[in-house]
């Protein structure tokens, strides 16, 4: 574990223009564990929290630190975004190129790799995720699960150190879900996962944090224990007598 955390939030407050009460208030957080699960009710500010980490939203108050240094200008943000990958809730928002290979190579090209190198990186990344042969597929014709995995590939192709996943298992079938869990378990990088899927959080050994009333706090260990027995519908048919 590095001495200075990759990302640190200090006293962050954020209020949406259309809202009177702040969604995040004096929030403090630092990336200290390898896998962090974020839970919280709908609209509690989980996605806002991610958007502040990557600088898509500028906090009203507080400070965002990247590798111990305050993020102030565009160059700082660019450096931060090189190291922090953000997997959106909707893959259709993330896959904008006509073909899979172009989309995966988009990040490396922007990082300054030559087309040949970018293509090599893209092909390798797809292969690592078991998506070999997907290169020339048309992005909008992929299935929901395929889109999710390709979206993950587009981010991993930039070799980030921290991965932000916003409800990654939403609408995935059990097979793709399992596939995603295996991939995430095999990655040696920091991960913060927003999810309502307790089983998924449990399987990824995440330390749980909860966002509530604008703050974030670490959950007690047994907090996860209480819920972890929930089965996904149809996966293990059983009866509660």
């Amino acid at each position: 574990m590095p001495k200075t955390p990759l990302i640190e939030l200090r006293n962050i407050s954020y209020t949406y223009a259309y809202n009177t009460s702040p969604v995040l208030q004096n929030l403090n957080f630092s990336v200290s564990e390898k896998q962090i699960g974020i839970i919280g009710s709908n609209g509690c500010g989980k996605t806002t929290f991610f958007q502040i980490i990557v600088g898509l939203l500028a906090p009203d108050k507080g400070e965002l630190l990247f590798q111990g240094k305050s993020v102030k200008n565009k160059a700082d943000l660019r450096n931060l975004r090189k190291e922090v990958g953000f997997l959106f809730q909707s893959s259709d928002d993330q896959l904008f190129s006509p073909t899979v290979i172009e989309d995966v190579a988009f990040g490396p090209l922007n990082l300054g790799f030559s087309p040949v190198e970018a293509k090599r990186i893209a092909v390798e990344t797809l292969a690592e995720l078991g998506l070999s042969g997907f290169e020339d597929r048309i992005t909008h014709r992929l299935s929901g699960g395929e889109k999710k995995l390709v979206a993950l590939a587009t981010i991993l192709a930039m070799k980030p150190k921290l991965l932000l996943l916003d409800e990654p298992t939403n609408n995935l079938d059990p097979r793709t879900r399992k596939c995603l869990i295996d991939i995430l378990q095999g990655l040696n990088l920091y991960q913060i996962i927003i999810s309502h899927d307790w089983d998924f959080l449990n399987q990824t050994n995440s330390t749980l944090y909860q966002i509530e009333h604008g703050h974030i706090h670490r959950c007690e260990e047994d907090h996860i224990h209480v819920h972890s027995h929930i089965h996904r519908a149809g996966d293990h048919p059983h009866r509660h007598d």
């Binding site: 898509l56 975004r81 090189k82 928002d93 988009f106 990040g107």
Partner: peptide
Amino acid sequence: RVHRAMILRG
């Protein structure tokens, strides 16, 4: 959202 996704990837 798409524009954001693009910015995040440089």
